[in-house]
């Protein structure tokens, strides 16, 4: 066993004056003060952010949001935000409460697209939905059993004389009649010229009209319900991803 190295003192320790004790204690005191200041600052930041996680349209305005216990509308969770109308509507109200007006506008537009989609589905169902029994041929001759075009007219999907455009499954495609001639895949056009330009160049009254370009075609041939579905699905997916991230951050904080 190693001793203190002093035979004369019988291996007993000897006192040594600590010249650095004062400066050392000063450094410790200063560091503790800094730590305390940082802890206070972090606590204040967390308190301010509590219940107001980032939204689809960006973080809310700093200091504008009311404390979580005084909120009228909470932001929806990731799953809740996927519910059409409810999720986006609730998010819009919460954004409005946070005075995040651009976010509220985006979410209100998303809720409106949900309404358009829901209305289209309900209206389609009210008109008979899909034609279950045949014949499903698009247009039969007047002396034959009525085909799909006549049924679509009788049910109110198309007006008398209104050309119906096969916007998704083309009429020339190999898709069966019972599928491609169903109401969701038929877009009522504005007229023969409109319909003709969806298919290519069209001559009417001696004037040759060019076909729609891809952007025009997408706009003109896509039915309202499909446009609303595009917006709705993209918006809700984006919102759910944003909410999932916000929920994860919230969990991290609680740990």
């Amino acid at each position: 066993m190693a001793g203190s190295g002093s035979y004369a003192r019988g291996d007993q320790p000897r006192p040594v004056p600590d010249k650095l004790k004062g400066p050392y204690e000063e450094v410790v005191r200063r560091q503790q003060a800094i730590n305390a200041q940082q802890a206070t600052s972090e606590a204040q930041r967390r308190a301010a952010a509590a219940g107001v996680p980032p939204t689809l349209s960006g973080p809310p305005m700093q200091g504008a949001q009311p404390p979580s216990d005084r909120r009228k509308f909470d932001h929806p969770g990731a799953l809740e935000s996927m519910i059409p109308i409810w999720g986006s509507g609730k998010e819009a109200l919460a954004d409005l409460e946070d005075r995040n007006y651009s976010g509220a506008a985006v979410n209100a537009a998303l809720a409106a697209s949900d309404v358009v989609l829901a209305k289209a589905i309900l209206t389609g169902l009210a008109k008979g939905g899909l034609k279950l029994a045949g014949p499903h041929a698009w247009r039969t001759a007047p002396w034959e059993e009525p085909g799909m075009r006549k049924w679509l007219g009788q049910q109110g999907f198309l007006k008398p004389g209104q050309p119906g455009h096969h916007w998704l499954l083309k009429q020339s495609s190999n898709a069966p009649d019972w599928l491609k001639n169903q109401p969701p895949f038929i877009k009522g056009t504005r007229g023969n010229l409109d319909h003709g330009r969806m298919h290519g160049p069209y001559t009417q009254g001696g004037v040759r009209y060019p076909p729609y370009n891809p952007a025009e075609l997408l706009w003109h041939e896509t039915p309202q319900w499909a446009k609303a579905a595009y917006v709705s699905s993209a918006g809700h997916s984006g919102m759910a991803v944003g909410r999932a991230g916000a929920d994860e951050t919230e969990l991290e904080r609680r740990r």
Binding site: R139, P142, G161, P163, N192, L193, G200, T203, G205
Partner: peptide
């Protein structure tokens, strides 16, 4: 009777014209 269904003939013809590209 065909004259009474003239609209159907016309609509069918206009639909076929879309493929031809000429009304």
């Amino acid at each position: 009777a065909m004259d009474r269904d003239a609209d159907e003939w016309l609509e069918a013809e206009l639909e076929a014209a879309v493929e031809r590209g000429r009304a």
